[in-house]
Design a binder for these strands. Structure first.
Ligand code: FES
Ligand code: FES
Lengths: 147, 147
DNA sequence: ATAATTAAGGATAAATTTGTCCTGAATTAT
DNA sequence: ATAATTCAGGACAAATTTATCCTTAATTAT
């Protein structure tokens, strides 16, 4: 559904939302270990999240790392998708037409539209905080570790 | 949602279903023009559809080209996805976990599951014939041409 | 048989995505 | 100030996807 980059962005943000505060910042090493992702690549992605939408913050130096504010924790998942340039995904035609639209629909459109609306609704109502809380509660996961 | 290859596969198959019969085969030139796709690349994809699932047939030589039987026209869209190796897509986790499953779900899973089921239902109930018929009726499109 | 036409198949190229590595800048502790 | 730590940024490399081209094989018409 999304690119690897976006998948890492989602998982990393959830982890930071879970553990990273202004006085408990998390290093890229810990993050990439926790979400099971390549460290350097993940670092790049976090830079994008910081710059594009300021979803996360960071400071260099000892005890430096990444964290989030209460405000950005309340952002919907869609904010991450926007920062990662995946907005297009939600406007993509199943058959690959230039745009998924009512004006020039493909033969899948009428049925797909209904599903697409639910996807958008999901990404706009679920907040980063929700996902972090669910993960904290321990019944869901953000990595592939066996234990 | 799908790769370019799969998008072309879907559009090409719809077009062949619309126009290609055993005594009116369609050449790759006409197909790629009709669906607005790179001819050589499309040819590769049609080979895959022919080999993997026998969704389409072809013959070389003058008046050769591609066509479909009544039987394969009645196949669901999912058959094309299978032939293109996109089965994985319908089993992919939104957050990129190894597998989208009940046993090790991500925090998006409980809500996404419901949407995914609708997607699968759509791909399993819509047949190639349906899509071809809709396109014939003229209110939907399988290319980006302005007219 | 020969020539013409069209798909099949393989090699290769271009573009994009994914991933690594190294140097520099910021911050902190000593 | 100096050294240690950690992010920032850029260059580069690997892998994958997308796309082209050329030769061969199959089929048809003459
Ligand atoms: S136009 Fe194709 S899915 Fe909407
Ligand atoms: S496990 Fe992530 S979407 Fe199902």
């Amino acid at each position: 559904m999304f690119s690897k980059a976006t998948e890492y962005a989602l998982r990393a943000t959830i982890f930071i939302a879970q553990k990273g505060t202004e006085d408990n910042k998390i290093g890229i090493g810990e993050i990439s270990k926790a979400i099971d992702s390549p460290p350097s690549f993940t670092a790049k992605i976090l830079q994008a999240l910081r710059k594009n939408n300021k979803i996360i913050r960071s400071v260099s130096g000892p005890n430096g790392g990444f964290y989030m504010t209460e405000k950005t924790r309340k952002l919907p998942v869609r904010a991450i998708l926007e920062a990662m340039g995946e907005n297009e995904m939600l406007d993509k035609c199943v058959l690959g037409l230039a745009k998924c639209s009512e004006t020039k629909p493909c033969p899948m459109h009428s049925k797909y539209k209904i599903i697409k609306e639910q996807l958008i609704e999901l990404f706009e109502t679920k907040t980063i905080q929700h996902l972090a809380d669910d993960t904290k509660n321990g019944d869901v996961f953000i990595n592939n570790k066996s234990k």
